Computed example of a mutant assay.
Amino acid sequence: MKVIPFKIAASQAESIIVSEDILPYFYGHMHRHKEMQLTLILKGTGTLIVGNYTQPFAPGDFYIIGANQPHILKSDPIYYQNNVEGSVHAVHIFFEHENTLSHLINLPEMEFAKSFLEKTRQGLQIPEGYAPEAARLFLKASRSSGLKRLLISIKLLQYLSRHVKEYKLLTTDFAAAPFPAVEDIRLNEVYQYTLEHYAENITLERIAAVVHITPHAFCKYFKKHTRKTYNAFLNEIRINEACKRIVNGDATCIASIAYATGFNSAINFNKVFKKTTGKSPSEFMKEYRHKWDNALKLLRQPACLIPMFASSLSVLPASSSIAAQGLVWPV
């Protein structure tokens, strides 16, 4: 499979495009498009890859994906096995600002938007504390049309550029430039193979054979295009899966999670886990349980108060009834 040059279906009457996915699983191919993309996950879990970055995604996550950035929302395997319509739900807003909105963006009054759109080329995640207000404006824009959608979208960009602090970067600077098509194809093959076989013993010889080059050439190629070694990338995928298993209670002990995600020892797993997340597995589990307790307290609040703390509910495991229904902020 290759990174697909995706064409966003646009109406001549709309300069800002809205798309809503209510599907058995998310679109399973690495792809890119000329539009900047804002995505709010309402239902479903999996792995997000943007450029050279990978992390788990869950309900309540809010991402900004830069124009022409290769990306994929890879649903967890259970979604492909169940194949049930409506298992995942996300809303996307696409801004084609280089051509369609260029005259508007270049106005002096829109300088805030112009500078912010430049920052989005690396890809951003909106921090939890700002997600409820950002999601409120986002959903209000997505449910509007015509001039009203445009005006609300401008207000959303203003909020994102002036009020949101400490964005989480999804890529490093080099990744802003698009890869040539042939490199897209190779990287996608590597990403897809790793996502499907991370729990196995993936040697350099084995992964190099996937793209039909020697192990030495593969090491140079992967480092050149991602600024990290393949083993570092593989460990990130494995730790992402380990975090999901801890959250979902899929294993009885840390050692069983280590072996289930491809590590050959619990000691090595603990070392890589802390290097990747900044916490030990036990610290991560303790922090998750604290957030879970807080989420349960929120559920005891009157229903009208819960949306005020909606971002806190994103810690709920996918198996819970709340996460299964997705998160919806009122507008």
Rank of each mutant, 00 (worst) to 15 (best):
S265W: 10
L316Q: 05
I239G: 02
K286C: 04
K7I: 15
I306E: 01
S311K: 03
L48A: 04
N106H: 08
V190G: 12
F273K: 08
P5Q: 13
A177T: 14
R143S: 15
N68L: 08
L156N: 09
M30Q: 11
T47D: 09
V18K: 00
L187P: 05
P108D: 15
S319N: 14
W292Q: 11
T277K: 12
L104K: 05
L160T: 02
T277P: 09
M308F: 09
A181M: 12
A266Q: 04
S320L: 12
P180S: 12
I4E: 15
K148I: 14
N240L: 05
Y198D: 02
I78M: 10
P307K: 06
Y27R: 13
E111D: 14
P59D: 06
I154V: 12
Q192I: 15
S15P: 03
A9H: 09
R289Q: 10
P108I: 15
E96F: 07
P108C: 15
V272P: 03
G249L: 06
L42E: 15
M308L: 13
Y193G: 04
I49C: 09
I16N: 02
E189R: 09
W329K: 06
L107G: 14
I93L: 11
Q192L: 15
E196K: 01
T47A: 10
I152N: 02
K34T: 10
R143K: 12
Y53P: 01
P307I: 12
A13I: 01
I105Q: 04
G28P: 14
L204Y: 14
A258F: 03
S314R: 12
T226F: 00
L23G: 02
K7G: 08
K2V: 07
L327I: 13
L42P: 05
L160S: 00
I213Y: 09
K279R: 10
A251K: 04
I202P: 04
E166A: 13
M285Y: 13
I254F: 09
K34L: 08
I126H: 03
A135P: 00
F273C: 10
P317C: 01
D61Q: 06
Y63I: 07
L104A: 11
A175M: 04
L169S: 07
E85L: 15
K74C: 07
L195F: 14
P317K: 01
T226K: 00
A260C: 06
S102Y: 07
T229W: 06
L117W: 00
H33P: 11
V3F: 03
S282E: 10
Q12E: 14
M36G: 05
M308D: 10
Y221F: 14
H197N: 11
G46W: 06
R32H: 15
I22C: 03
Q81S: 03
A266M: 00
N106K: 07
N231P: 00
P127I: 09
G249Q: 02
K224F: 04
R121L: 15
F112P: 02
Y191S: 01
C253S: 11
G146M: 08
K224I: 05
I246E: 05
T261V: 14
K114V: 04
P281L: 08
I72C: 13
A10R: 06
E111S: 13
D293T: 03
T120D: 01
E98F: 05
N270R: 14
H197I: 00
A217Y: 09
G249W: 03
